[in-house]
Simulated assay, not measured.
Amino acid sequence: MTSYSLVADVGGTNTRVALAKGKDLLTDSIVKHRNTDYAGLPQLLSAYLKGQDNPDCKRAAVAIAGPVKDGAGRLTNLNWYIDKDTLASLSGAQRGAVMNDLQAQGHALGHIDEANLVTLKKGADENPNAAMLVIGVGTGFNCAPVFQTAKGRFVPPSEAGHLTFAARGADQWDLSRFLEAQLGHVGVEDILSGRGMERCYAWASDRAGVGKTATTSEVFTAADKGDPVAIRAIEAFVTALGNVTGDLALTLLPFGGIYLIGGMSRAVAPWFDRCGFDTAMTDKGRFGDFLNAFSVRLVEDDYAALSGCAHFLARADNQ
């Protein structure tokens, strides 16, 4: 009987589940589930396994959009909980693993087809054996450093989206004060996320004397038609992303490259040149030119987290 790995990428709205053989993700086994159709993750995974005729799973790993500690985690935007023992039990696997979704993306680096990578900034001093950095901008914000060690790849978790946003420049200061009046503490995720784009628009609209609101998709539609308020909102978002990316690069020194993932990363990437992402990223005083050492790439592979789970399990088997 063939032995498989069960892998899952659990987001706030949808969950992708698949089977893998060793490091190889079986793309024809990928199923996307709506989370609202299930009472919890165990029920969703059980339904998937039943639909696959209950395959023999030797290992199982899930990546969740939320903090993970000691093999257990809860989604940030959905009250779902999972731990490694429950995962192993429901899948019949000998071993289960629970990780943050950015950790899974980190384990996928180096295994993503070049066709699914878009170079946004070519680094002047790139070293493929050095540390890398994954930055996720979507429903929320987070990052994960990726380190190569003598014992293999190490991808520690973080909750970087809840760092205090460090405003830079007149517009960012004004945006930060605008949001502080509403939210109290302004975290990075309060600006760099889907909801964050809507907040950027509310700020730009208020400053234009219009006082309107818009959904994220409406902001991009209006900007494509030349609406100045929507364009200013995207400029604020892109500038903030460049600023935060530069701060994280200085903190972690990812000479192996910076990789942007998530729906919002993909949505704003076409605006980078127009809105000054590179200028904002390198606006670090005497260390500005130093930041030109780091490459920035956009990941367009929707299944990278699933692949990362598979590679994590395969490497763990060989240790």
Rank of each mutant, 00 (worst) to 15 (best):
T13E: 02
L175T: 02
E218K: 07
G136Q: 01
S176C: 14
A170P: 02
R232M: 11
L44Y: 02
L26H: 07
V31T: 05
M99E: 12
K284H: 14
A18L: 01
L75F: 02
F141D: 06
P228I: 01
L313G: 12
P55T: 05
K151A: 10
L163A: 12
F178N: 09
A47Q: 05
C275I: 04
R207V: 10
K121L: 10
L183R: 06
A124D: 14
T245E: 13
L75N: 01
V155G: 04
D37Q: 07
V62A: 12
Q319A: 13
A314Y: 13
A97L: 14
K121E: 09
D9Y: 01
C309V: 03
I261V: 15
G184K: 03
V62K: 01
F147S: 05
T119H: 05
S295E: 10
A88Y: 03
F272S: 02
M264H: 08
V244A: 07
D224N: 15
A88M: 08
L175Q: 02
G92M: 09
A305F: 04
K23M: 12
V10Y: 00
S295H: 07
G169P: 04
D283F: 10
D247R: 09
L133E: 03
R95L: 13
R315Y: 14
A47P: 00
Q105A: 15
L6A: 01
A97M: 11
Q172E: 13
L183D: 08
R315C: 13
G92Q: 03
G161K: 00
D24A: 13
V229C: 13
F178K: 03
T27M: 10
G209Y: 05
I82V: 13
L120A: 05
I231T: 12
L78I: 09
L306H: 06
G66N: 08
K21H: 11
S193N: 08
A230D: 06
G169M: 02
D85K: 13
G187A: 14
L25R: 01
N35R: 04
R297V: 04
D227E: 14
A124H: 11
V10R: 00
Q94K: 13
D56E: 11
S307K: 05
C275V: 07
A280T: 09
F154K: 06
K23H: 12
I30A: 00
L44K: 00
A72W: 02
